[in-house]
């Protein structure tokens, strides 16, 4: 890495806002992205994810704020800044009547690649996105999954430092989703990637960091590593054949709360993950269950803490 590359983050967003008439779709959003990082951008539909991404890529002009890409101001030097972005909008910007190769060559030329550099760039992107074999097919005849891949190929064609993907796995089957995730992961090794989605496991699977946007405001920001229990709370799901009262469970050292679920004998147990080792805690719970003859049926760690967090954050003060 050279001097200049380490000087500033790959992407720096400050006070970014966008107004549609009277509604403020995005309000004063700040965030940054370093090289080699995958940032998950989460939010319910209509929260302002796509608007923010369109502003990052110069498709929409912000009402206020600034976007620096590699230290270059997107608003002042749009052409220089846009050269460093690869963008996949929510609907891949494809021309159905072109073949995959024609389309990729056109995109490469649009992104200012030299004539001699186009063929190798197209071949490289095609190989990365698993498009070899369909290069002569018309885009309109390809399946949704392949079209999505063509869209991604278009975004990484010119090897931009910053890749912005707006819901790249929407409408794909599970196998395709896995392939696209692997592709994004490998992209994250060399490029900075911003990924918007409302599929939570996706974020946990591929992102280094996550931020949640709700009604145009960034309300949460953390590294994905912090989400799995290490944030302080451990969760267990317990099912017992002869359930005791919830108080009996509370006696286990480290327990924070016990919640009886509507299904008889099912409990949600929260414990202090930073005080007791999760394995020790589970073990003591199991021992107690056996000793007291509760008839332990199920004991599962709950990992979908991001989902809890997401639901809590995005619905909490909906009434307010």
């Amino acid at each position: 890495m050279t001097e200049t590359e380490t000087d500033h983050p790959l992407l720096q967003v400050r006070g970014l806002s966008r107004r549609y008439g009277d509604t403020l779709a995005v309000r004063s959003v700040d965030f940054m992205l370093r090289r080699g990082e995958v940032l998950g951008f989460l939010g319910p539909n209509g929260a302002g994810k796509s608007t923010t991404m369109q502003m990052l890529c110069g498709v929409l002009a912000p009402s206020a704020g600034e976007v620096l890409i590699d230290g270059i101001d997107l608003l002042e030097q749009p052409r220089e800044a846009k050269r460093r972005i690869g963008y996949l909008p929510e609907n891949p910007p494809l021309y159905r009547e072109l073949t995959v190769d024609e389309y990729l060559r056109y995109s490469a030329a649009l992104h200012g690649l030299e004539r001699a550099a186009i063929a190798p760039a197209v071949a490289r992107a095609r190989a990365l996105c698993g498009l070899d074999g369909v290069q002569r097919k018309l885009i309109g005849t390809l399946s949704k999954g392949f079209q999505q891949r063509v869209g991604i190929a278009q975004a990484i064609l010119h090897q931009p430092p910053l890749v912005v993907l707006d819901e790249p796995t929407v409408g794909l089957d599970p196998i395709q989703i896995r392939e696209i995730r692997d592709l994004i992961k490998s992209l994250g090794e060399r490029h900075g990637v911003i990924l918007s989605t409302h599929i939570l496991p996706e974020v946990q699977a591929v992102c280094d960091r996550v931020q949640i946007i709700r009604r145009g405001e960034l309300i949460y920001h953390a590294a994905t590593g912090e989400l799995d229990g290490s944030s302080g709370n451990g969760h267990l799901h317990v099912a017992l054949r002869h359930p005791p009262t919830a108080d009996a469970l509370r006696r286990i050292p480290g327990t924070r709360s016990v919640r009886a679920l509507p299904q008889a004998g099912h409990f949600e147990v929260d414990f202090a993950g930073d005080e007791v080792d999760p394995a020790t805690y589970a073990e003591s719970l199991a021992r107690l269950a056996v000793e007291s003859g509760w008839g332990l049926l199920e004991l599962t760690p709950r990992r979908s803490s991001l989902e809890d967090l997401f639901v809590a954050l995005t619905t909490s003060d909906e009434a307010a």
């Binding site: 890529c57 110069g58 498709v59 963008y87 910007p93 159905r96 649009l110």
Partner: peptide
Amino acid sequence: RSGSIQLLLSAPLT
């Protein structure tokens, strides 16, 4: 209509 204009708008051209 097809959204392909986003390709042109996000490309480095005026």
